[in-house]
Structure formats: C-alpha cells, structure tokens
Amino acid sequence: MALADQGGQGTGRPAPGPTRRQIYEAEVRRRSNLIAAGSTLTVLILLIVLIPMAPGWEGVKKSFFNAEVFARTFPGLLEAFLLDVAIFAWSAPLIFILGLLIALCRDVRKPALYPLRLFGILYTDIFRGIPVILVIYLVGFGVPGLGLPRPWNSPYIWGTVALVLTYAAYVAEVFRTGIESIHQSQRSAAASLGLSSSDTMRFVILPQAIRRVVPANMNLFIALQKDVALLSFIGPVEIFRQAGVYKSLLANFTPYVGAALIFLAITIPATRYADYLLAKQSKARS
C-alpha cells in the first residue's frame, strides 16, 4: 500500500494561518485515515473473495442468502414486526414505572419500612436471576392456566407482564446506581433547608439520578426491543415466529436473515444514539 508522502512540513507560515504543528497533525490524521480505509478495504475484499471459495458456500448461499425467498418473505416479516413495535411501545413505560418503584423500595431508609427494602432486594435478585424465556413460559402459560376467562388470559397480556417483571429488575438496578451516585451531602443540604425525605427524593435526588442513567437505560431498552421476540414462544405471531413459519415451509433460513436486518435497522441507530448520549455526558462531567 503505497502512500504518497505529501508532507506540508517546513513551510513556515505567518501567524493567522495554521501553525506548523496544526499542519503536521492534519497530515498525521490524513495518513491514519488512509491507512484505516486501506486496511478495512483489504479485509472486506479478502472476506468477499475467500468466503465464496469455501466448499459449502453454494449451499449456505441457497439456504441463508436466497434472493427469491427474501423477496417473497420480507413484506410479511415487516408486517409481523409491527407487532414487536407495539409490544415494545406498551411495555417500555410500564417497565420504567415499575423499575423506578423497585429502586425507591431499595432506597428506603426508615427501619420500620425495612420489609419494603427486603422486597426490593429479593425482587431484583429473583428476576435478574431467571432467564427471560423461563419467566415468559411460567407467567405466559401458568397464570392463564389458573382459569382466567378470555380476554384476561391473553398471551399478549401475560407475556407483557413477564417482560415487564424481568426488565423492571434491570432498570431498577440502573436507577439505584443513579440514586446512589448523588452525593450524600445533597441529602444533608436538602434536610437543612427543611425538605422532608420524600421531597428530597422527588425534587433533589431523582431529577439528577434519572438524567444521569439515561444512557444505561437506553441500552436496556435496546435489549428489550430484541427480547420482545421471545413472546413468540407463547403464541403471538411476531417477526421471529413469522420467520420460523416461512423457514419451516420453505426449508430455508433466509427469512431469519431478513428478520435480523429489520432488527438492525432499528437497533443500530438506537445504539448509536445511546453512545452519543454517553459521550456527551462524559464530556459534560470532565
């Protein structure tokens, strides 16, 4: 990889223009960009050339990257994805509220209210410790099995409950770290101003704590967006199940690739946004 050296060094310029140091740094930047682009391109070309040379490539291509199957199933997948979006949309606020309540339980400091605190600890221990899919099975089939009448036994309701129970445990832990990150002196200051402990929490601690953990919560909600697909195990025909039906009928895994692309189209921008928020926050702190 030949890189032409176009060094701009040694051309002393008057003060208003870029300094020699700036020119040098710009050159270094330009050069590392070129090298990065070059090596990325090389890796890509190697991948594109080498993978099809594998003996099983034709089979893999037919089973996973089948254009005909893709075109045939993609519209159906997109339609099924709307159900994922809907489930996410109604779960997320519930998770936020329940997570906050559990976090508050864990922060209770009055001795008489210790049972609340114990509940908070047990709750997060249990629901963070059980795989989501097991909670979905147990709640999604178990509770309706008690004999609830329709529509109260709907897998949509109980599947949502399972997701909310699990994710609230994670979100509660995130809120707790946020609450604990607010220095004790702020509570003391609030107390000296005559605020009750609940007012201190409401007007002093929480507004700062919630803002501080927004990026961490964003990550959890991205994970939630993907885990919504687990509801398919108890009946709802969302994108993962729809892809499974296509897979079974066509004996082809391409619909899964299509589903993955649809997920990526949502989660990559969301991840980037979370990264951006994190970067902004760390800049503000430093």
Partner: peptide, 16 residues
C-alpha cells in the same frame, strides 16, 4: 403459533 406440540397443548389448557 407455537414451537412444539407441548406448547400448543399448554395454550389449550390455559384456554388461550
């Protein structure tokens, strides 16, 4: 739709 026979039966028992 479900992943296997057992799940279909479970949903039937649950009245779903």
């Amino acid at each position: 739709l479900y992943g296997d026979n057992a799940d279909v039966v479970e949903a039937m028992k649950a009245g779903q």
